[in-house]
Design a protein around this nucleic acid. Structure first.
Lengths: 197, 197, 197, 197
DNA sequence: GATGAATGAGAATTCATTCAT
DNA sequence: GATGAATGAATTCTCATTCAT
């Protein structure tokens, strides 16, 4: 599936190393070694080391994440949302390294931050907020700032990532991750659902 | 308030720079410049650059954050929790730079990660989970894994930090932050509160 | 004769400088300058400055000196010994700088000292002592501890080196060096006392 | 016996460290530590680090070594020479560290070398050569260049020092050192050849 | 296209020396 | 006299980048 041309080998190696040691602490020598090419070869594809980082965030790579909140179920039944988010969570977990690198380095590199915000984050939050606003209109969710809800939901999902990589629970297996996601949805829904009576 | 001895000047300057550019991308020359001392002086106080980073995480510096979830109100009225968390949020905001540096660099430096987990995170999560377990026992919250709840709540609060530094809303003022915190508590409580009827 | 690849150029320059100023007092900048390469290039070949020193003592470089007392003439006629030692002296003089550096720095660097003792000195002294023991058995030399004789003979030859570099005589030319060696052999074999008959 | 004023404490500490690690590799911080004073204090007594080295070689310190070959027994009986040299050897051994430092560093510091040669070595060699010349005149030693004999004898004694510090024999005790000195004198006087009659 | 030796600017760190107390 | 914090030039070493092959 992944093409194994030199450029991709370099990006692949760089992603692994940036994720493990951070961008600044990774040397081009290490990248070349891991990519199985000569150090000089890197610079045939990327004029500077920073361009490797920037290329990691190019449309193609992030398209999947950009659309992570697209097409949420307008029917709004709980079970639907659960299934969809479960599916999106897989996308997130699959791209864990990339997300880690991108979020970490965006703190320090404004081109990255701007690109991310303009192309990824704004789309994700707009889409999610639009969905939430619609459900509010529909009288399913109580009225509030949909952007705040969106941020909180994203924060809850992010806590899952953080939990896994930064402060791991013992035995964080598939099942536990399922429980975790369930509780996120439980808390989120029953917090925002309008009380019927 | 802060003592202005050389060591503290260096730590202060380093914190600002690490937060702005990351640990690896910050040079000791820059630290010296910002601290207003000679580059060599740094090494009278910190044998290596990494020791500066590690010193930022020493007990004294993090004590306040370690206790951020201590003494939550066992009476459990919503208003109490709101007030307490609002107060704790101030602690978090005050230490924003430190938290950012510590969480970012803990990804890359195992001594940091281990120290944080053993001394800070475990205390925070244990304290918070104990509180939640007690409220479950008391029949106020529904029964579930208190550690998952703890992580989700922390994730929600973290989203506030992220929102502010990474994907800032327009006009993120005191009032908006208050709204945000209110929604965190609304969502959290009404999600976990046992339905009365 | 000597290959002029970068590594050898560096070793060559380093030997000259270490001999002139000592290891600690020589800077890598000076070595690079003398070797005609960039300072950074040195570290492509030698991970640390100390590795340059250690590489100077590698088998190849010292093989000639290690064998300096091999194959002494078992016929034992005085003239033979004189010719052989004269020849070996040339080896010693040719490697004067290396010997100087190695002996000086072995005082301070245990890896050097151990390597030298285990690989060079023990062979030289064993070989020489074996030769002396054999001549004692053959009734040519009087019986004594052959290792003490070996050390004394080596000390006498070393005095020649010292004389030349440390406390030079006026006009220490080829002829004088010949005279000096002759006296070493005379004294070693016959002593300084005038024969009565 | 030794005065324990600050200046002497510094010289004492410096001698030990220069002998152990060499002049260049010894830091003034280490000297201060070992001398039990502040780093700044050193510079009240010695304007530069090099002045410490130079002070180690001042007349007073080396007087004993300067006279090491004075007053050799003009009676020339073997036993006399043996006793005298044994006594002088004690002087040499007592000053081993100083000799080591002085000889090593004289290679690199011309002021040291010049001072040593003009004040110490020339006196030692002149005295020794004068003694040898006199014994030649007296018909006890065979005629030869007395300076070559002097150098060879000194080289033989130096081999004892080298043997001890650089390539130690197992169990180099008082007795062995006595044997070694005996053989030096035996060889110097009689050589190693077995006497026919 | 690919290589990897070479570069040199710049990084962290050391250390003799100064100087206010 | 003694101190030791501060200095900053110099040192070892790193690393992104270049370029001849």
């Amino acid at each position: 599936m992944e093409s194994r041309n030199t450029s991709d080998l370099i990006l692949h190696a760089a992603l692994a190393l940036f994720s493990e040691k951070g961008f600044s602490a990774t040397t081009t020598r290490e990248i070349a070694q891991k990519a199985g090419c000569a150090e000089g070869t890197i610079f045939r594809y990327f004029p500077t080391k920073k361009d490797i980082l920037i290329s990691l965030v190019r449309p193609h790579a992030l398209e999947e994440l950009r659309r992570v909140m697209d097409n949420l179920p307008r029917q709004g039944e709980e079970e639907n949302l659960r299934l969809i988010l479960e599916n999106r969570l897989k996308t997130i977990m699959k791209n864990k390294s990339l997300i880690k690198v991108v979020l970490t380095e965006a703190q320090y590199h404004d081109e990255l931050k701007d690109y991310l915000m303009e192309n990824i984050a704004s789309h994700v939050f707009d889409t999610l907020a639009a969905y939430l606003a619609e459900r509010m209109e529909a009288g399913v969710f109580r009225k509030a700032d949909p952007y705040i809800f969106a941020r909180i939901l994203v924060g809850m999902m992010a806590s899952l990532l953080l939990s896994e990589s930064f402060y791991p629970m013992e035995g964080f297996d598939e099942k536990k991750r399922g429980d975790y996601l369930n509780e996120i949805i439980n808390i989120f829904l029953h917090g925002v659902l309008k009380k019927e009576d």
